[in-house]
């Protein structure tokens, strides 16, 4: 790999990593409060993409001005965020809450989430067709500046900036607000938190909403970068989940770090080993990291595991 190639692949890698980080936060937050893999989170991501596709198709803009572009992007964020949050909220109500009320075994949650994921993705395939739709980008995707001769496009800047803003916002939300304190309390010990007057159901609902909001927006950003399709959530979903685990699941900053790491690894493995191996590399890194740090990079006390 030449130096030039390094820079050429570094920038898309950062953009991809930022996206993974945002999705991984959704996994890690749900894991934090429920100790469950939210297998349907990839579908939240997909719904975000489709919601924006529908709105943009309805508006049917053509070569918008700069002000209009900004408005459209903001509209895209709002739509995707709303759709994602709504889907995540509904998912929690349908696939998680009834099971929680019955004190169901852990694996039952996993299966109901998988079922919901099958349902949503195939329903989307039926409603919108099983081919990929390209999402019209509401601005001219030209290069903004170059770093060591590698181009940086508007879209990449947008992705990285919005991801960073979302992550900072989330960090503040979790660490500085009353709601964040509730989330942390439930994550640490749900029963005790309940005895202390935290409304556990509400906290869990809100956690899903926050995770879904980020997931939906990530879906919109991802759709601009590639396309919208009913299986679009699958690979980003499992990679982001891997990222959450690499960082130490349940740990929000770990998820950000893990996402960035896997994004870079995936991007760099294309020139190093060939395009077709890019998905393998992320999992090889995952396994290597877990072999040496069984609880992820930033780690997290995992029960009584030695």
């Amino acid at each position: 790999m030449t130096v030039q190639e390094f820079w050429d692949y570094l920038i898309p890698g950062i953009a991809l990593g930022a996206l993974y980080a945002v999705i991984a936060i959704g996994y890690t937050m749900v894991y934090g409060v429920l100790q469950l893999i939210n297998f349907a989170h990839s579908e939240v991501f997909m719904v975000g993409g489709f919601a924006v596709l529908m709105v943009f198709t309805k508006i049917d803009f053509n070569d918008p001005s700069v002000g209009m572009s900004v408005l459209l992007v903001l509209l895209g964020f709002a739509t995707a965020g709303f759709a994602g949050a709504g889907t995540a909220f509904a998912l929690e109500k349908v696939a998680y809450r009834p099971l929680r009320k019955r004190n169901a075994p852990r694996l039952a949650f996993l299966i109901s989430a998988i079922g919901a994921s099958f349902l949503l993705s195939n329903l989307a395939g039926k409603l919108f067709g099983r081919n990929n739709h390209s999402l019209t980008i509401p601005f001219e995707n030209k290069k903004v500046f170059t770093v060591m001769n590698a181009q940086v496009t508007v879209l990449q800047v947008l992705i990285v900036c919005s991801a960073v803003i979302m992550m900072i916002g989330l960090d503040l939300l979790v660490n500085r607000t009353k709601m964040g304190a509730g989330i942390r309390a439930v994550a640490q010990d749900a029963e005790t938190a309940g005895l202390m007057g935290v409304d556990i159901d509400k906290v869990i609902s809100r956690t899903f909403i926050v995770g879904g909001l980020l997931g939906g927006i990530a879906g919109f950003l991802f759709a601009m970068n590639s396309s919208v399709g009913y299986t679009m959530g699958f690979f980003p979903g499992i990679t982001a989940f891997a990222a959450a685990v690499v960082g130490g699941i349940g740990n929000v900053r770990g998820a950000m770090l893990g996402g960035l790491l896997l994004g870079l690894v995936e991007s760099f493995s294309s020139p190093l080993f060939g395009e077709e191996w890019r998905y393998v590399s992320a999992f090889v890194v995952l396994i290597l990291v877990l072999m040496f740090r069984p609880t992820g990079i930033l780690g997290e006390r995992l029960g009584r595991t030695a």
Binding site: G32, N103, L107, R184, Q188, D189, R301, G303
Partner: peptide
């Protein structure tokens, strides 16, 4: 309310840092 249905995963004592 006696015991856990499933000892598959130890409650991680998960915390959001």
């Amino acid at each position: 309310g006696i015991g856990d249905a499933d000892a598959m995963t130890e409650p991680a004592g998960g915390r959001i840092a």
